[in-house]
Write a protein that binds this DNA or RNA. Structure first.
Length: 561
RNA sequence: CGGGGUGUAGCACAGUUUGGUAGUGCACUUGGUUCGGGACCAAGGGGUCGCAAGUUCAAAUCUUGUCACUCCGACCA
């Protein structure tokens, strides 16, 4: 592409409404433009990168024998009502009426429709297994779009679905696609971790997430410094460690005006880890009081599973008044009028601090024998330094951007969508399904988050919009012009399209732009053109290498392989 | 959905307190000088000041409403 007379622009200043590095750089480089909150245009450069990523995904998916197809985005609401997910998605699903007043939705994910497509093929066990995928636009009306392409309302997802006759078959196909995902993210050059995760609104048997490591990630990954244990914080299991202290006698102490657990710990000069705090919550309109160690956080996913509910909220004063709890001084001793749930860890603690259910008082040296409760379970988040559930090492956290997700769905959707096959005993059996997603635009943003510097983007060669850029220093010097054009033509003939900066701009502008848009290799044609000499430089390098034009061309060809 | 912030030229912003001709930098056009790391000088072009109603002789500025964008939270694959 020659920049003269092309659609190409860059911005010298950061946009004022983008927070993330990736969003800012992609906008400044002219890769994307926001059209409204969480909805972006992919401009020519951005579209090339998007396509390059899609091609890598396509190659690896095709290798597994997965077949590509294309589903509609616009669907009757009925599919999601049949599967029972219409209510789950709620207002995050875009909805509209057609001219006959029928309710249509824009698809947020396509398990239902793939089940319908699969039913055309599946009659007997002999029709299984197989797998299908598509790359298609998905719509989710996010309450808060954020971070450029990372959390958006309209996005392209590669979604794949496997169909098997039993769990053994699912395991086999799952493993194949899992490996393809590793190949994809390895080829994209992303630093990522695979973690176990909650199945959430998808349901099913198992969920694993591919998480790009990034400080702006919205998920917390729990990792072990000794073994390869990894888990999303939302489902990470907690190993309890018994205290070896001798039990002391419980004692009431005054803690005037010390309401938060941090204030109490400081006032009593006691480690937060030797305290127990209360969380007063509203579960289905009833007061539930949760007790966890003072330095931990309540894990809503675990609580929802333990209690079998979809939603928990903070309790208001009216609800709290149904018990004898005193805000700031609530403890699990002699507490009445609420369902009391304690974290199992508390049973392993000794001589800890609890609220006394009396304004201005706490107990110290409380022990498990002193407290009473209705339910006990794992309800808290792990914290850094906790014991690894696999090897006993210590765990630490990293932040991740979820770029891929794989689910063993089981028979949830096949049963709901009436997808059955006949087995060799003439019995009807539900098809066993798996589903597998990759957010293509989000992956692009994650790559930028991981690969950039002060001067701009840095694309890996395989996904760069152009692998090499030619900077023509003086477009009035015929020798330079001819050499630059010769190099351009030679590379085109090799099937490598360069971006050729032939604009009437000063050299500095051309260098800055080439760096901002992150072109991996640069050939500069300048003063030495009369001796057939050019400068070659990688985007990541700080020095030029002088060589002949022939050597530069060969270098590019070699690095593109 | 709760709480804050911002809407003025393609981009980034000032002007709003105290109403009185629409401004600055970048970008763009023309001429000149310069020209291998975001040049300089000069002269230009471009804006229903988010939208609507109101107050006023007069509104970017005051009032009310409304829309959009955004941050923190809630929520979320």
């Amino acid at each position: 592409m020659k920049l003269n007379n092309s659609y190409f622009y860059t911005l010298r200043e950061n946009p004022n409404d983008e927070e993330s590095t990736s969003g800012t750089l992609l906008i400044r480089g002219g890769y994307i433009k926001k059209s409204s909150s969480g909805i972006y245009m992919y401009l020519p450069l951005g579209y090339k990168v998007l396509n390059n990523i899609q091609n890598i995904i396509r190659e690896e998916m095709d290798k597994t024998g997965c077949q590509e197809l294309l589903m509609p985005c616009l669907l009757p609401e009925d599919y999601y009502i049949s599967s029972g997910r219409r209510a789950n998605f709620g207002s995050s699903m875009f909805q509209l009426k057609d001219r006959f007043n029928k309710t249509m939705v824009l698809g947020p994910t396509h398990e239902e429709l793939f089940a319908v497509a699969a039913s055309m093929k599946i009659q007997s066990y002999k029709d299984l297994p197989f797998s299908l995928y598509q790359m298609q636009t998905k719509f989710r009306d996010e309450p808060r779009p954020r971070f450029g392409l990372i959390r958006v309302r309209e996005f392209i997802m590669k979604d794949a679905y496997t169909f098997d006759k039993d769990l053994a078959g699912l395991d086999e196909q799952y493993a194949k696609i899992f490996q393809a995902y590793k190949n994809i993210f390895d080829r994209l050059g992303i630093d990522y971790k695979i973690v176990k995760a909650d199945t959430g609104v998808m349901g099913g048997l198992l969920s694993e997430e591919f998480q790009a490591i990034s400080p702006i990630g919205e998920d917390t990954l729990v990792l072990c410094d000794q073994c390869d244990y990894s888990s999303n914080l939302e489902i990470s299991t907690h190993v309890y460690e018994d205290s070896d202290e001798d039990e002391k006698e419980i004692q009431l102490v005054e803690t005037p005006h010390k309401k938060s657990i941090e204030e109490v710990a400081e006032f009593l000069n006691i480690d937060l880890k030797k305290t127990v705090k209360a969380l007063l919550m509203n579960v289905n309109g009833k007061l539930h009081i949760f007790f966890i160690r003072g330095d931990r956080e309540l894990n809503e996913v675990k609580v929802q599973k333990l209690l079998g509910v979809n939603e928990i909220n903070f309790a208001n004063d009216e609800l709290i008044a149904t018990s004898n709890a005193v805000a700031g001084y609530t403890g699990p001793k002699d507490l009445t009028g609420a369902t009391v749930i304690i974290d199992e860890e508390i049973l392993h603690m000794k001589n800890f601090v609890i609220g006394a259910n009396k304004e201005g008082y706490h107990y110290i040296n409380a022990n498990p024998k002193d407290i009473s409760y209705d339910i006990c379970g794992d309800i808290a988040n792990v914290v850094e330094g906790d014991k690894c559930p696999v090897c006993g090492g210590r765990i630490h956290f990293k932040k991740g951007i979820e770029i891929g997700n794989t689910f063993k769905l089981g028979t949830k959707y096949s049963k709901a969508m009436n997808l059955y096959y006949q087995d060799d005993n003439h019995q009807l059996q539900p098809v066993v399904m798996g589903s597998y997603g990759i957010g293509v635009g989000r992956t692009m943003a994650a790559i930028v988050e991981q690969m950039h510097d002060d001067n701009g983007l840095i694309w890996p060669i395989e996904i760069a919009p152009y692998k090499v850029g030619i900077v023509l220093i003086n477009q009035k010097d015929e020798v330079q012009v001819k050499l630059a054009n010769d190099i351009y033509d030679r590379l085109m003939a090799e099937g490598i399209e360069p971006v050729f900066d032939d604009r009437d701009e000063r050299a500095g502008v051309k260098f800055k732009d080439m760096e901002l848009i992150g072109i991996p290799m640069r050939i500069t044609v300048g003063k030495m053109a009369k001796d057939d000499q050019v400068e070659f430089r990688m985007r990541t390098a700080t020095e030029n290498t002088v060589m002949t034009s022939e050597e530069a061309i060969n270098k590019v060809i070699e690095l593109c392989k």
